[in-house]
């Protein structure tokens, strides 16, 4: 207390821009929690990836054997291929649809607020619930409807087709992810000053020209943020896939997060820790990318 009262405004410490030590004390709880709950387990996981541990009991060091096995494992390579491809497609679908909807929901239409609420609804439903509902629709309703209409390609469940099951996952993931993306785009579009549009209208710019030359360039920062955050989230896909296909048919839709988690239940702990380490490095690269990009935009 004495220290604080002495460091009143005008004191030398404040002038030199030095921060009072009390402020650092406030960092301690957060730092301790983060270290204990995130940093330490992560370091332990990396440590175990160089052993043959099954998660408990005795283990011995095995060097980089887990990593060698990992890179030659077609299931793991398949999981990376599927996850990255799925994330790219989903991010494109989500942002395209969300951007169009956001334009519609910011236009001068009736019941704007009510419509926005409707479009945002999927956001509040848990992913696993959405997945089970859609699972039923894809397995029963859709084939029945296709059968009644005589549309042969959809008479068999989409989820049972190893080549097309990912499409179903993209649809459901997009359905859940679009609302939050819409919200960011609405904020971005509403932030554009109205006088820019007025000037464009006076110069005779058409609506599509205004979209191309004003709306899109002036929301570029929001698009970038949505794309990067979305991509990072879709790389971590888990619950919707578990509820829809559980990684199948075969292993065609097993995501990286799913294969890592299976290490806990299948006594394959150290191997999947090696997988997690690789995945962590990829996430790190994306995070740095995001940091660079968003820092540039924020100051602009």
């Amino acid at each position: 207390m004495a220290v604080v009262t002495n460091a009143l405004p005008g004191g030398k410490a404040r002038v030199r821009g030095r921060v009072d030590k009390t402020y650092y004390a406030f960092l301690v709880p957060g730092l301790v929690l983060f270290t204990l709950a995130i940093t330490l387990p992560a370091l332990m996981g990396i440590f175990y990836s160089f052993t043959n541990s099954v998660g408990y009991g005795q283990f011995s060091f095995s060097g980089v054997i887990n990593y060698i096995a990992l890179f030659s494992d077609p299931t793991i390579r398949g999981a990376y291929g599927f996850t990255i491809g799925f994330a790219l497609v989903t991010v494109a679908v989500v942002n395209f649809v969300a951007f169009l909807l956001a334009i519609g929901l910011t236009a001068r239409i009736r019941a704007k607020v009510a419509l926005r609420a409707v479009f945002v609804l999927p956001m509040v439903v848990s992913g696993i619930v959405i997945a089970y509902v859609f699972n039923f629709l894809f397995s029963n309703s859709l084939p029945a409807a296709a059968g009644a209409l005589g549309f042969a390609p959809l008479e068999q469940s989409l989820l049972a087709n190893p080549d097309l099951a990912w499409v179903a996952i993209v649809i459901v993931t997009a359905w859940q992810a679009i609302p939050s993306t819409i919200l960011i785009y609405i904020a971005g579009i509403l932030a554009i000053p109205a006088d820019v549009y007025e000037a464009a209208a006076l110069d005779g710019a058409s609506a599509s020209r205004q979209l191309r030359s004003i709306t899109v360039p002036l929301t570029a920062g929001y698009i970038l943020i949505n794309v990067i955050i979305g991509f990072k989230n879709f790389l971590n896909s888990y619950d919707i896939i578990v509820g829809l296909t559980n990684g199948g048919p075969g292993t065609s839709t097993t995501s990286i997060a799913m294969s890592i988690f299976q290490g806990f239940t299948n006594g394959d702990y150290s191997y999947q820790m090696a997988n997690a380490t690789i995945f962590f490095l990829i996430a790190l690269v994306i995070a740095f990318l995001q940091l660079r990009v968003t820092r540039g935009k924020a100051s602009a």
Partner: peptide
């Protein structure tokens, strides 16, 4: 061993 997804392979 359960580390090998044999049930998924059988499904394929």
């Amino acid at each position: 061993p359960s580390a090998i997804p044999v049930a998924n392979y059988a499904q394929s």
